[in-house]
Amino acid sequence: MSDTSKPIDPSRRQFVTRAGGAAGAAAIAPGVFLTTPAQAKPADQPVSSENRWGILIDANKCGNGCNACVTACEEENGWGSADPSEDRSRPDQKAHWIRKVTIRDKATQHVTTLPLMCQHCETPPCVDVCPTGASFKRADGIVLVDKHICIGCRYCMMACPYKARSFIHEDLKDQRPWAPRGKGTVESCTMCVHRVDEDGTPACVEACNAETHKAMVFGDLYDENSEISQELKKHGGKEIRADLGLNTGVRYRGI
């Protein structure tokens, strides 16, 4: 994004493709709308607690060595390799929203690989500890940082069991307009809230599907007809650190 005179980026192209697809469906079958989004939310309406967005990740399908979800997130939200302005921070100071982790069961030697990011807890510890209320959970279950009132105390980073949050250690430039981020505040995975609000799918899930791994399903946990609810109903899903009772929005299978 260093060349701002050419405002084209992959996410926009994807957006156009999506819109084109929907329009195509409308043209082929006028009157019958197969692609009508179930939770179409007008732009001027607030999000509702009747939805709870979640992601189901099947670790058995997740590709060992595949990093597509991480790259897609970087590109979409402008961090990591997609943010050349964060160049003075040491590696352990740089922002990270999502990471790939490979683990081995000590007893069975079974190796599992999976993506790890903000788990969007129903009862998030980061929200409990934030002194100003900058760390908050939206009505639809997405956990966010309101960087306008974040004072940069980092208590939420102490409280998060998943190490999902990052503090920005230096001045940034050329952020994505849909993912503002800056020095002295804390940030984490937003579940691509800007896409979700327009009935889109998070970039990581989209990228996983594009890689044909299809290890990630995004959807409304409260809608019993949604793919994610059906899958969870049929096969179940596990939470990481379920012992904490956080009722996470991100669930795993195969761990």
Partner: peptide
């Protein structure tokens, strides 16, 4: 503009 873009990025 510590966080927001100060120039147009998308149309």
């Amino acid at each position: 503009f510590q966080c927001h873009s100060d120039v147009p990025v998308r149309a």
